[in-house]
Design a protein around this nucleic acid. Structure first.
Lengths: 156, 156
DNA sequence: ATTATATCGTTCGATATCGAACTTTATGGA
DNA sequence: TCCATAAAGTTCGATATCGAACGATATAAT
């Protein structure tokens, strides 16, 4: 006897799960597609950090980044070390808090991110025969809404 | 001067990238939400395999699974060993091919998957205030289309 | 039948991930 | 001021991931 007095009849947990399931598969497929284009030594996590610093703003602290990616801060230490070694970001002491640091993009970092996106172009063109790119664009703002809500309502 | 003679004016690579970016963030957030509910020792990859075996069909070979998840087969060896140790799947020799194996769900495996999904219910209810679940359901089939196309057009 | 080649799954070694303990600096009382 | 507690980032050890090499079996050609 499922949900007899539920305010939203017809919405089963499995249905919501199906949504996130599709999201997960698409993420996996697109990630693999993207990863194949990245220069070796650079992993997706590296790129994600660069992209986040551009999307939001650089000068973030490692802890802010770890929260944004839902990843332990110990993992960020490693990722940021790799980015710094390649000269894509620059770590500076935090001006207000001696315990903390700030992550700033270098010119190389910005250029690398833009370049990496442009590497996707051949794949996108190959897909555009089959895929309705305009529908993709219509879907994006809906996903943005959902992402924001999930982001606001999480614990950590 | 971008795309002056392009057949699809107004579709920049960055726009498509934004779509996959949102997908990636949603996946990360929902994965973390889900992972917090899973019993310890069970990781998302374990659950994903169980779920795939139910969604598609069990009796798949490890190689089929590795292709489905876009992960190296060496990784599957590890994941399947974990599932077998917990009695959630059963590995049998392939009846037609001596090199291969088949992965079959046990009763415990099926029950575990259903139970894991049900553990999401509290989270889903908590979200349903903010999130429009019906829109989620409308979006799912669009995502399914996109997933299928990506799936058909991949290399590996 | 025999041999060459391809395929499936595992093993191994190197790297990535991440929880827990630790160091250093902040903060908020007494 | 001094001390207890909290917070930021690193270190360390254990586990996960995954490319490459390997052994076993299958397939194809002669």
């Amino acid at each position: 006897m499922p949900d007899e007095d539920a305010p939203n009849p017809g919405i089963a947990p499995g249905t919501v799960f199906a949504f996130f399931n599709e999201i997960g598969i698409i993420q996996q497929l697109s990630r693999a597609m993207f990863e194949a284009r990245l220069p070796d030594g650079i992993i997706v996590q590296h790129f994600s950090v660069l992209n986040h610093l551009i999307r939001v703003a650089d000068g973030r602290t490692p802890l802010e980044l770890s929260r944004a990616f839902q990843v332990p801060k110990a993992s960020l230490t490693n990722t940021l070390a790799g980015l710094e070694k390649r000269g894509l970001v620059e770590m500076r002491p935090h001006p207000k808090d001696g315990r903390s640091k700030q992550v700033w993009l270098t010119e190389e970092g910005r250029a690398f991110r833009d370049h990496a996106i442009s590497l996707l172009v051949p794949d996108i063109l190959a897909l555009s025969d089959k895929l309705d790119l305009e529908e993709l664009m219509r879907l994006t703002p809906r996903l943005t809404e959902i992402r924001k809500i999930l982001d606001e309502n999480r614990n950590t």
